[in-house]
Amino acid sequence: MTSSSRPFDLQIKLLMIGDSAVGKTSLLLRYANDTFSSTFITTIGIDFKIKTIDLDGKRVKLQIWDTAGQEQFRTITRSYFRGAQGIVLVYDITDRGTFNSVRSWMAQINDHADAQVNRVLIGNKADFETARQVSTEEGQRLADEYGVKFFETSAKNDVNVTECFTTIAREAKARIPTDPNNNRQGQRLNSGRASGSKPGCCK
């Protein structure tokens, strides 16, 4: 069986977190469907999208879980931390409050996610420069402090969106074979999915 005839070689589970209305769903829709609408919907509870990409010669299927940002929903979203191989933490550069929450989100990751999980910090709405409240330097400094990559993105203008997802996917992919625990999980998901699968959308 050749690599191309199989739907994917590896499955990676990503999780998007961040305060309410920072643009998690918009980023995801831009990345997965390449669409944007300024009046978007609230995510109630949990939702997901799947995108299969070619990453360094391997077909990687990204299962991206989109969560509700509101404090009220933490109890639900928390249960999705476990088993995620990469976490995309989003704040809104036009809202300092969402930037200040990044530390509490990081603490949540420490408490509830797998120890080895890959993380990336995103400052979204970079197109809205006039309303900016958080400078790029501040964002970069915080990211450095946690030792994670940092991007400023615009879901509206499609800036850096693909890059940030590719980065986190690549980091997670590099780690997974060395981590037998996650590898097994990937394998299991892979085999369970193989029967009903259809070719990925990148074809």
Binding site: D47, F48, R193
Partner: peptide, 13 residues
């Protein structure tokens, strides 16, 4: 169960 869709993903909303 086979495809890995938990009941809460649909129902909680």
């Amino acid at each position: 169960r086979e495809i890995g869709l938990a009941p809460d993903v649909l129902a909680s909303q």
